[in-house]
Amino acid sequence: QTTWDMPTPYPASNFHTENIQQFAKEVDAATGGKLKITVHANGSLFKANEIKRAVQSGQAQIGELIISGLANEDALYALDTVPFLATSYADSKKLWQASKDAVEARLAKNGLKVLYSVAWPPQGLYSMAELKTIGDLKGMKIRSYSPTVARMIELMGGQPVTVQAADLTQALSTGVVSANLTSSATGYDTKSWEQLSHYYDIQAWLPKNIVFVSKKAFDALDQPARDALLKAAAAAEERGWKVSEEKTAWYIDQLKANKMKVQPAPEALQAELLKVGEKMTAEWVEKAGPDGQAILDAYRKLK
């Protein structure tokens, strides 16, 4: 019998974590209890930014991370957070198809094997004030948590302000920041309606999580166990995308039920935002080089 430790970053009630629990159960059943995966959710074993290293160095055998978390290592990992490049579930899936081989090859260099990937709901813009044009964002203090987000805020004319998740509730209620770019899911989880009034469903991008395994641990399994693992992973991927999309609608309903003003971005604003997206796509290609251009071309062909 083999036991794997699986650190994951998100709380037990998050749909990614629930999906992983189900995946672990299926692996257990399919291998007749020969491969047991202990899920350590919510950063209880390793925190989000330590999980890759933990698996890489053998302290854990399998883990989950958000791909864009690795963006500092390689521009490739920032692809799914380039704004307005892939804004629907269908497009996000195509973007994953186009970039999957490259991501797998890049992680294989670190001795890691990708099992599956699931997208988060699209990123929207939460604000205290009503927004009509991009001019309304001028000088607005918007929370930034990554280089991509900071750059996007700058291009939108706002002022990026770093606020850590732990300080966010207070920062929003005291006006340290007055807008926040995040998904309907996170907005629901953090109960944004307690501080913010408007939600603009701008669908900037759909970040993705991946579940990955140490190549060494994977190779140590016997063939039936490997097959069972890959089969459960494929099932988890399909289930995950479906749940993610279903949940998006549910999350938005919840925002409405909690009296947030939920609306699509006004046309004038969306048009300006798309321009920001084009500029950032060009900047991404500049960083990612010819390999990046090739992925982008492949994606556009799929579209």
Binding site: N49, R53, L70, N72, S144
Partner: peptide, 15 residues
């Protein structure tokens, strides 16, 4: 030594 070998980069804005 491992951080150096793995080319570990902070995942924050500081990189």
């Amino acid at each position: 030594l491992q951080s150096h070998e793995f080319e570990e980069i902070s995942q924050g804005v500081d990189a």
